[in-house]
Design a protein around this nucleic acid. Structure first.
Lengths: 273, 273
DNA sequence: CGCGCGATTGAAGCGACTCAACGGCAGTGG
DNA sequence: CCACTGCCGTTGAGTCGCTTCAATCGCGCG
């Protein structure tokens, strides 16, 4: 029952309150071994890990896990759901840094400064394991499997940062969107889900901020890609129709898409059909 | 003799070979305590740390520390110099992800995949402590101070990634450049150096890739900022003349610089003087 | 001295930003 | 119940800044 009631944007009002009472925001009791299982660690030290309690917290859609600049008390392992990570500029502009999901670590960038440099907001109902920062070193020392998991998760977060650069590197807005969709597709595949059916948890504005373009441009790029028969778009539901074509489009960094667009746009009748 | 004769850029030809023989790529003997001192750790566990040898490697300007896609054998702590981190797209476009200097960690993003997702090239003569990956876990377990240092350094690297997003978030090229220069200035200050005198180690093209604009635009932005009397530019030597003005300019994310530019351009005579 | 490369500057085209309007949907309150 | 209010998403039109192509200059090096 992970992300059953997706509720991406902002809503989740009405009949949710009783759910709160039911599952509770009060920390469900779990142990480090649950964290290790989530992160796909081996079965080493499970006996010890099973003896160390860890709290599990549910975050409903639209809620903030931690604010930018807030004192950091814990790091988090995402058990289910999707978070949006962003920074707010002096003029109020929200720059989205990324979207993180299951098995990813959150808040580790605050270890060095003790303050969160970013804000994390749940885009759907989420659940995270909460690990107090003061327990980090000790636990990593006592439980080598846990230390390993932290290293791997953080390294993964570090490597994932280049996805943003990858997207930004392309000049054409359609190429940026194509790369973004392919990243999502790869994540879906990594989770064993269909890499062709994407259910976007974020708004067009969030995507626009992440891609570094205006949100109107994102809208236009969606319709353009759909017009090229590379994807099907129904609001937040995106289906990749032509995976190879999408990948081919994503390769061009500078503006030589003319050939590709010419090839695709060579079927205007089909596009209009 | 890993990648001694890298030849990525262009320079480092002629009289460099004998230097190789002189200072040697052969690892200078150091210990973990040297690493701890570099990273500003406390004096805990120094006795043990001093007993664990660590190799120190010199990398000359233009040489590659590790290639993109290469099997990762070690992580590195930068002792001196500056590295350029980048990825190469399918069409040969180099996307620069960042520039790392003293006390920063390099290559940790390969821990999870065992392959380097990025390439690191020395922009000047550098020296790094080399820590084999197979020793990472064990050393962190046995020497808690070292484990702490790794956590802090990696967290710092994670937090530093938002500098790229910060730069990219601005739409105007001059604002991106201004933010970039301010980041460099802050690093200079953190190292106890003058925050106003910057000696750029990278080419305009590298900056352009990092900022996500054409290199001609970087050139133009430099002259524009100089024309506004915010900086002085002499090729790679940049002096921040008006720190407050530069900061004020860097605040505008969207394109409302008109007021600021008008205010600055209100003194055309002064500009031309 | 020629070659390659970095850096600057110019000119022209185009694509993204901006402003604006519209339809759709959900939650709200009379 | 239904207008009312936001917000999301889409589409249109116009402006402007960046990209692109091009030429030039300076510099290190063979």
């Amino acid at each position: 029952m992970n992300s059953s009631i997706a509720m991406p944007g902002h809503q989740t009002q009405g009949n949710v309150m009783y759910l709160t009472a039911l599952v509770g925001t009060e920390a469900t009791r779990s142990t480090v071994s649950d964290v290790l299982r989530l992160m796909g660690a081996g079965d080493a030290d499970v006996q010890y890990a099973a003896s160390v309690p860890v709290s599990m917290r549910r975050v409903r859609a639209g809620e903030t896990l931690f604010h930018e600049g807030a004192h950091a008390e814990s790091i988090y392992f995402v058990r289910s759901g999707t978070f949006k990570i962003f920074r707010t500029a002096a003029d109020g502009y929200e720059q989205v840094l990324g979207f993180v999901g299951r098995t990813e670590v959150l808040g580790f960038d605050a270890v060095s400064t003790n303050d969160h440099p970013t804000e994390a907001v749940a885009l759907e109902d989420c659940s995270v394991y909460v690990l107090p920062m003061r327990d980090l070193f000790g636990l990593a020392e006592r439980c080598s499997a846990f230390g390993r998991v932290v290293h791997l998760a953080v390294s993964d977060a570090l490597a994932r940062q280049c996805e943003l650069a990858d997207v930004i590197a392309a000049v054409a807005a359609e190429v940026r969107l194509a790369r973004f969709l392919l990243h999502l597709s790869h994540r879906m595949a990594a989770c064993g889900q269909s890499p062709r059916r994407l259910l976007l948890r974020m708004t067009r504005r969030d995507i626009a901020s992440y891609l570094g373009v205006a949100h109107e441009t994102v809208s236009r790029s969606f319709t353009t890609l759909a017009g090229w028969r590379l994807i099907d778009v129904d609001n937040r539901e995106v289906t990749i129709v032509d995976m190879k074509g999408l990948h081919a489009l994503s390769l061009g960094t500078r503006r030589q898409i003319d050939e590709a667009s010419r090839r695709c746009m060579a079927h205007p009748a089909v596009v209009l059909a």
